[in-house]
Design a protein around this nucleic acid. Structure first.
Length: 911
RNA sequence: GGGUGCGUAGCUCAGCGGGAGAGCACUGCCUUCACACGGCAGGGGUCACAGGUUCAAUCCCUGUCGCACCCA
């Protein structure tokens, strides 16, 4: 006997263990022989991460797809794993060392430190994998991969894949080493990706500085203007005003730019200024980068410390002077007075000195965008000139762009293709080197003169060097590691065994769908596509499903600092994994963010309980599965109707999942289970189950059990735990289950539609609802049982009444039903079908209230008829609207008119 | 500044050319033999605003206002 309420916490762990024991998540589990494959690679979560609500949504959707396809009996692989999160992991371990007052990274040395990171990984990394399990994720955990391979196997295939790709790309000219401006993290002393930079608006200042002209040059600067803005007065200046938000970078200025068409400064182009505090003579150049409308119209150029200035410098052949150390302190390229100062200290001192020297013209407040590292949002990122390895992203992007243009990879929803194109078509060289220790060390060895030998092993590099130099030389390996995303980009094929030609690689690549949030389109999608196309010659997936961002109920992005984070693990604890999953699925409408509210989760928890109790009812009434039950052979309209409705529900859920409309699928299941099966079918079944007609009873018991089975199947991808539990419980009676629900076959029901049974049951539901409604509106006490009188019933109605009398009297709480030639005095009346129905309430009924009620209904019908008449009277409508629309309007009108006539009669009878 | 998306019931959201929907919340009744995490019945919306296209517009187009996100 099932408990009264379902308690997820006591069931979920056990069910999960059962699945694992049955090997149900293994690639190909339950597949039909020769079945096609269905593969998803998890977008690898970060080894330092823990499950947040975005992961919960992401993995719920993947699991729905996986479980659904597994039930279609395909050869399913859900490939799980994690990435090694170079920066984040190194930071955590360094912080840990500091907290424990142990020797730091540099004191400990590289080898020991990396060893230490592995220890951390083994002890506390990867919590998220267990959290995914709590969510019910049915990934093949036996195949779990890690982008760094494994600690015990330095030559792990995951590592070899990365090395091989790097070496190959170098040989193909798609990776090169160059001195370029990169985004530099002065705290970690490493380059980071431009995607790891977040521009944050802060209150800043615009400092206007007077740079003195060199060589005694002066010019006339307009200071007075007429109505048309034409200058009318000038002053003689021996300086040019430049505006900057970062005055400390002036130490690295190597030019001043003005717009070539800017009349104010035309005469100065080609002249020089003397850089204050430094004394360097730098040219005034013409470049359209200078915006005459912005600031003073003249702009200082610091090629080594600003991305735009870098470009200007290249165009105008300006030198690049780096003034910062790797920790963003002033270096020896600056005047002695500033050396060693931190960038913010330097700013203060420089401003003070400029002011003292009369250089500072004026200051204005300005909101400025400042690059921060997007993790902590605390460290200001510096554009920094450094030797780095770059991938030629532009070249690599072309086939990926083409793949999407030509539809070989499709985005759902499609609008995200625009975002993809926008980024891919303006893609910058990808800096792939990081000055970290935790990561894939770059397979480059340098000779004595700095020549780089990029090979898969040190031996190969030595051989190449010997060939190059004509003698054996000592080589020094590159200190840097690769961007974590470099290895993540290989995920769709490296996890399948590449560079080995494994059977898995052959079988499961190309994978099917990548499921991800749009905020990460550039990280996963773009890079996986580039590498997949380059090394496998085929797109890594044919479909990219972009799901929404989960926000709080007010639409705010969840963040720890805001304190509005909803922890999915808490939801799972409180409401169960099934309710959590179902909520996310039901709210996952395409192209729209999810505003998650606890109320919804609670509502769906109630749904889980409802399902549980329906099963409990069936159990109590001995609704057991019957071997050889044929839903087409049902005799009772009730059972013929419900199997047809089940078929419609199955079709709706199937369509929803197939079209990635998870909310539609979830809602279709919800509506059917609660609104149709529980609210009507179960109620209808009661008189039969408690009646004396053994044949009907048996048929209903078998049908109920059959329908519940279908319900468990279609709900399983959304609510795997409770459905599996019920599958097990209901499997205890009747024929033995062939498998767990997870490996059961998805229903494909056809030929179960029965319009006649539908019509009959619809009529029944309308009749019962009408009685209830009238009783409520006339304030008849709920418990009171009234007789129901029918007038003008057709033969068909009479037959239905005879067959279903017990059922109607029960559900509508009636005393009896009887035909009559006319409506009894003082009755409440209503119309269903062709007949008029009456509830005799002589003496009880408030004639005025009843009249008012009927009049309201008549008015409504009048309104409807009038509306339709307006349309039908419109010649244009009749001429231009499609025939079926016109026909539909006529039918509706006819029905309304008929009904109105009966209501009118009913009113007349009251008077 | 450029781009994208969104403004539908108190809240969270579906629907997106021909009869305004769901969940939660709300009101009333019901301790009816699965379920009060329940049942039954209800109330509640000029579908942001203004134009336009159309026989017909919540739905398509244009503009305005408001909000969100992305990029500069």
């Amino acid at each position: 006997m099932l408990e009264k309420t379902y308690e997820p916490e006591t069931v979920e762990d056990r069910i999960f263990a059962d699945w694992i024991a049955a090997n149900a998540f293994a690639a190909g589990a339950g597949a039909k022989p020769g079945a096609e494959t269905f593969t998803i690679v998890i977008p690898p979560p970060n080894v330092t991460g823990s499950l947040h609500i975005g992961h919960a949504l992401n993995n719920t959707i993947q699991d729905i797809l996986i479980r659904y396809n597994r039930m279609l009996k395909k050869d399913v692989l859900w490939q799980p794993g994690m990435d090694h999160a170079g920066i984040a992991t190194q930071m955590i371990v360094e912080r840990q060392l500091a907290e424990r007052q142990q020797p730091g990274r540099r004191e400990m040395g590289r080898e020991k430190f990396v060893e230490r990171v592995w220890e951390w990984k083994d002890e506390s990394g990867g919590a998220i994998i267990n959290q995914l399990k709590r969510l019910g994720a049915s990934a093949d955990f036996s195949r779990e991969r890690f982008t760094m391979g494994s600690r015990s196997e330095p030559d792990d295939q995951m590592v070899r894949a990365v090395t091989k790709v790097f070496v190959e790309l170098k040989k193909r000219g798609l990776i090169y080493r160059a001195k370029r401006l990169v985004n530099w993290h002065p705290g970690l002393e490493t380059a980071i990706s431009d995607l790891e930079v977040e521009n944050i608006e802060v209150k800043g200042h615009m400092w206007h500085l007077r740079y003195p002209l060199a060589d005694g040059v002066t010019y006339e600067f307009p200071v007075a203007f007429d109505e048309d803005g034409k200058p009318t007065g000038y002053e003689t200046r021996d300086y040019i005003v430049v505006a900057t938000t970062r005055p400390e970078t002036m130490l690295g200025d190597t030019g001043v730019a003005v717009h070539p068409d800017d009349e104010r400064y035309k005469g100065l182009i080609g002249k020089f200024v003397t850089l204050p505090l430094v004394g360097r003579r730098i040219p005034i150049i013409a470049d359209t980068y200078a915006d005459p409308a912005l600031g003073s119209g003249a702009v200082k150029i610091t090629p080594a410390h600003d991305f735009n200035d870098f470009e200007v410098g290249v165009r105008n052949d300006l030198s690049q002077i780096n003034i910062f150390t790797t920790t963003a302190a002033i270096n020896d390229n600056a005047p002695e007075a500033y050396r060693g100062l931190d960038r913010f200290e330097a700013r203060k001192k420089i401003l003070a000195d400029l002011e003292a020297g009369g250089i500072l013209d004026h200051v204005e407040d300005k909101k400025i965008m400042v690059p921060h590292d997007e993790k902590s949002k605390l460290v200001v990122i510096e554009p920094f000139l450094a030797d780095q390895w770059f991938a030629d992203a532009e070249t690599l992007a072309q086939p990926a762009i083409k793949a999407v243009r030509e539809g070989r990879t499709r985005f759902v929803p499609q609008q995200y293709e625009n975002l993809f194109f926008a980024w891919m078509e303006n893609i910058k060289p990808w800096c792939v080197s990081r000055q970290l220790w935790w990561g894939h060390r770059i397979p480059a060895w340098y000779g004595p003169d700095g020549e780089a030998f990029v090979e898969e092993s040190e031996a190969a590099a030595l051989a190449a060097a010997e060939k190059h130099y004509g003698r054996t030389v000592e080589l020094k390996r590159d200190e840097d590691v690769l961007d974590t995303w470099f290895s993540s980009a290989l995920w769709p094929f490296s996890t399948l065994g590449w560079p080995e030609e494994t059977p898995e690689l052959k079988r499961y690549y190309q994978t099917d769908v990548l499921v991800t949030g749009f905020d990460i389109i550039f990280f996963w999608v773009a890079r996986m596509m580039m590498m997949g196309l380059e090394f496998m010659g085929e797109e890594p997936f044919h479909t990219v499903y972009m799901h929404a961002l989960v926000r709080d109920e007010k639409g705010q992005k969840m963040s720890k600092t805001k304190g509005n984070v909803i922890d999915p693990l808490k939801l799972i604890e409180e409401y169960g994994a099934d309710a959590t999953r179902f909520t996310l699925a039901a709210m996952a409408a395409q192209g729209r963010d999810i505003r998650l509210s606890i109320n919804r989760v609670e509502g769906y928890r109630n749904f889980v309980t409802k399902l549980w109790n329906a099963a409990r009812f069936l159990e109590m009434n001995e609704c057991r599965r019957v071997a050889g039950y044929d839903p087409k052979a049902n005799k009772l309209p009730l059972n013929r109707w419900i199997v047809g409705a089940t078929a419609r529900a199955v079709a709706a859920v199937t369509r929803g999942i197939e079209e990635y409309k998870f909310n539609e699928a979830a809602n279709a299941a919800y509506d059917f289970v609660w609104g149709t099966f529980c609210d009507w079918y179960v109620e209808f079944s009661k008189p039969v189950l408690m009646g004396a007609d053994e044949a009907s009873k048996a048929e209903t018991q078998a049908t109920a059990a059959y329908v519940l089975d279908q319900i468990l199947k279609i709900l399983h991808p959304f609510m795997p735990f409770v459905t599996e539990e019920l599958w097990g419980e209901t499997g205890k009676a009747g024929p033995a289950r062939e498998s767990q629900l997870i490996l059961a076959e998805w229903p494909e029901l056809s030929g179960l539609e029965d319009p006649q049974a539908d019509a009959e049951l619809n009529w029944l539901m309308e009749l019962i609802s009408s009685v209830r409604s009238v009783k409520t509106e006339l304030n008849v006490p709920g418990g009171a049982k009234l007789p129901l009188v029918v007038v003008g019933a057709s033969e068909e109605t009479t037959r239905r009444l005879v067959e279903s009398a017990a059922l109607i009297t029960r559900l509508a709480r009636l005393e009896a039903i009887s035909p009559a030639a006319s409506v009894p005095q003082g009755s409440a009346q209503f119309v269903v079908g062709e007949a008029t129905w009456a509830l005799p309430l002589e003496g009880v009924i408030d004639i005025g209230a009843e009249k008012a009620r009927l009049t309201r209904e008549m008015d409504k019908l009048d309104g409807e008829v009038a509306g339709i008449d307006r349309k039908l009277a419109n010649e244009q409508f009749v001429a231009k609207a499609p025939e079926e629309v016109i026909e539909e309007q006529r039918t509706r009108r006819e029905a309304a008119v008929e009904r109105r006539a009966k209501i009118a009669e009913a009113i007349a009878r009251l008077s």
